[in-house]
Design a protein around this nucleic acid. Structure first.
Lengths: 133, 133
DNA sequence: TTACATAATGTTATATTATAACAATTTAAA
DNA sequence: TTTAAATTGTTATAATATAACATTATGTAA
């Protein structure tokens, strides 16, 4: 049978779900995604979670842990999600990815009191966004 | 009736659940806690979640967002959980609270490109702990 | 002390988030 | 072209968390 996808490295379900997240202005939850893509034939949670897992793994999206929700990566510098930072508005729930070279460098090179370095971090800032202030 | 608690500022359920988390060497999940405290009369999820919420609110414990689990605060400097940082071992799942004044100061005073400052942050580092390395 | 507001508790049911397990198909590539 | 790996489809269920409501305990102020 003809190949069903090839233009890029995403599979059909991955592409559908990435597109949805990518054009969203806010973090999307797994079941919100599920309901949105049912018309496209994605009918069950495992299909969504598998695509999300892969997209996270490849750095195309990030999971906002404090919200159990997903955003598209806006930052070519966070190679495969080793170093992620977000600002989260406590009022409107808006999430922005922070792309700050100095911050990344500071945290990437951080070592704790025992001298241990870490290969990955996730940082979530909370406050009020410009609109809500 | 006689007052049931007063030695400190925690209620009965809060104290039971705090004690359990405080003496644990690893993060505890809500349902693990629930099973552990059923013999003490705490029988339903809302009782656990309410105590956890209050303990988080007052800074006695922290939630490890990437694990949906809770640890006791080991750091008198993270006043009411405004500035939390943890190291998480990807192999043995061990979690340590990081208490590093420079790090805290750096992140507390961080402002993004638009000049926005944040009133709270949570940082999770991932890597291998000393034992697992 | 009594009366009142607030906080905490107990309880049932249910909502939300996530994975296990297995069969089938598609893809890449040897 | 046949084989391994990745992806998909599907059903069921596990794990995490909250809604809603009734009751009791606690702190405080009249």
């Amino acid at each position: 049978m003809d190949k069903m996808y090839k233009e890029n490295n995403l599979s059909k379900n991955q592409q559908i779900i990435f597109d949805l997240i990518n054009k969203s202005s806010e973090p999307l939850k797994a079941y919100t995604i599920l309901f949105s893509v049912q018309k496209k034939g994605i009918k069950a949670p495992p299909q969504v979670y598998r695509a999300l897992d892969k997209l996270v793994e490849t750095g195309k999206i990030h999971k906002i842990e404090s919200k159990n929700a997903f955003v598209a990566c806006r930052n070519s510098n966070c190679e495969i999600s080793k170093a992620t930072a977000f600002s989260i508005c406590e009022s409107c729930e808006m999430v922005d990815e922070i792309n700050d070279a100095k911050l990344t460098k500071y945290l990437t090179s951080f070592s704790d009191k025992k001298g241990t370095k870490y290969k990955r971090f996730n940082l979530e800032f909370f406050g009020l966004c410009k609109k809500c202030k």
